[in-house]
C-alpha cells in the first residue's frame, strides 16, 4: 500500500467499530475537514467520488473533440494558438482528474475502459456538433462558463485530492471563458455574416448549456447525499440560476440575444426567470441519441486502440532497460 493507491478502505488494521468510524467521518465532513486518500471513508462516498471524478475527467477528454475540430481551420494565427492551448489544457485537466481519481484505488486504465465501453458517462454537452467557427466561441463563453459555475464550489469539496485538482483547473480555466467571450465579441462586431454566425451559435448552445447543471433538483437522484457529504455544495437549480443571472448581462454586452422569449428579470425574486428546459432532449442525448454520441466515443476508442502499440513499445523498452540496469548491478557486485 502506498500513499496514493490505498487499499479499498475495508481493513483499518484494527477492530474498530464501523459505526464509530462512520460517525467520526460524518463529524469531520460536517466540520469542513478534508478527507484524504488513506482515511477511512464509507464505500458509498468512495463510489460516488470515483463516479463523479471519472465523469468529470472523461468530460475533459471527450470535450477536446468538438473544439479540436476547428484547430486546423482557425481563421487567424492568434486564434489558432489560443485554441491549441485551450484544447491542450483540457487534456491536462483530464489528467489532473484521473490522477485525483487514482488516489481512491481505481486506475486510469480501468476508468478509460469503462468510458470506452459506455459504462461511464461524460457531460452530454459534448455530444453536440461544432458546425461553425462561432461554436468555438459559444463553447468558451457558455459551456466553459457553465462548467466554471459548477466547478468553483468543488474547490471546497470534502475530498482533498479532488478539491486540489479543481483549484488548479479553475485557475487555468479562467482564460477559457474569456477567450470565448472575446471571440464572440469580435464576430458580433464584425461583418454581417460573422454576426449571424455568432448569433446562430449562441442559439444552438444556450439550452444545452443550461442542461449542463443536471436535472432539476426534484429529479436528481444523487444530489441530497452528495450535498451532505460536501462533494456538492449547491443544488443543480441554484447553480443554473446563478449561471443565467451572470450570462444575461454578458449577452447584452456581446450584442447577442439569448433564444428564450420567457427570459426576464424578476424583481421580486431578484433573479431572471427563464423558460422551460426540454428535459426530454436531455434524457435522449444522455441515453446516447445525441447528434455525436457515437462519433465521440468512436474517436476516443480509436485513438486508444491505435495507440496501443506505442504504449506497448515504451513499456517493452522500459523493461529492457531495467533488465540491463539490473544486469549491470549484478556484474558490479561480482
Amino acid at each position: 500500500m502506498t500513499a496514493v493507491t490505498p487499499d479499498t478502505g475495508h481493513g483499518t488494521g484494527h477492530d474498530t467499530d464501523l459505526g464509530q468510524l462512520a460517525a467520526a467521518f460524518d463529524a469531520a465532513v460536517a466540520a469542513d475537514e478534508r478527507v484524504e486518500p488513506r482515511d477511512w471513508m464509507p464505500e458509498e462516498y468512495r463510489a460516488t467520488l470515483v463516479r463523479q471524478m471519472a465523469q468529470h475527467a472523461h468530460s475533459e477528454i471527450i470535450g477536446m473533440q468538438p473544439e479540436a475540430n476547428w484547430i486546423t481551420r482557425a481563421p487567424s494565427l492568434r486564434r489558432k494558438a489560443i485554441l491549441m492551448a485551450k484544447v491542450q489544457d483540457e487534456a491536462g485537466h483530464g489528467l489532473y482528474l484521473y490522477s485525483a481519481a487514482e488516489t481512491l484505488g481505481t486506475s486510469r486504465d480501468e476508468l478509460l475502459d469503462k468510458l470506452h465501453a459506455g459504462k461511464q458517462k461524460y457531460s452530454s454537452i459534448f455530444n453536440y456538433p461544432t458546425l461553425t467557427w462561432a461554436d468555438v466561441g459559444a463553447i468558451g463563453w457558455l459551456v466553459d462558463g457553465a462548467a466554471i459555475t459548477n466547478q468553483v464550489p468543488i474547490c471546497r469539496c470534502s475530498y482533498g485530492p479532488y478539491a486540489r485538482a479543481m483549484v488548479r483547473i479553475c485557475k487555468e480555466e479562467s482564460f477559457h471563458q474569456r477567450q470565448g467571450f472575446e471571440l464572440l465579441m469580435a464576430l458580433s462586431q464584425g461583418t454581417e455574416a460573422q454576426h449571424a454566425m455568432a448569433q446562430d451559435a449562441v442559439d444552438r448552445w444556450w439550452w444545452p448549456s443550461l442542461m449542463m447543471f443536471g436535472p432539476p433538483d426534484d429529479a436528481s437522484s444523487h444530489s441530497a447525499q452528495s450535498m451532505a457529504w460536501r462533494i456538492k455544495r449547491h443544488s443543480n437549480d441554484e447553480l443554473r440560476q446563478r449561471f443565467v443571472d451572470i450570462a444575461v448581462p454578458q449577452a447584452e454586452s456581446l450584442g447577442l440575444t439569448l433564444p428564450d422569449p420567457d427570459l426576464k428579470w424578476n424583481e421580486e425574486r431578484g433573479h431572471h426567470d427563464f423558460g422551460a428546459i426540454d428535459w426530454a432532449e436531455f434524457w435522449d442525448v444522455l441515453k446516447g441519441n445525441g447528434p455525436c454520441n457515437a462519433e465521440r466515443i468512436g474517436r476516443r476508442r480509436a485513438a486508444h486502440e491505435e495507440g496501443a502499440w506505442v504504449r506497448e513499445a515504451a513499456a517493452a523498452y522500459a523493461d529492457k532497460q531495467a533488465a540491463k540496469d539490473n544486469g549491470q548491478t549484478e556484474e558490479a557486485r561480482v
Binding site: 473533440q65 479540436a68 484547430i71 486546423t72 484544447v87 491536462g92 485513438a303 491505435e306 496501443a308 504504449r311
Partner: peptide, 14 residues
Amino acid sequence: GEWAGHAPVLEEEV
C-alpha cells in the same frame, strides 16, 4: 495540431 484528440496516450496529447 491535427493530432489533438488522437494521441496514443494523454500525456502525449500535452
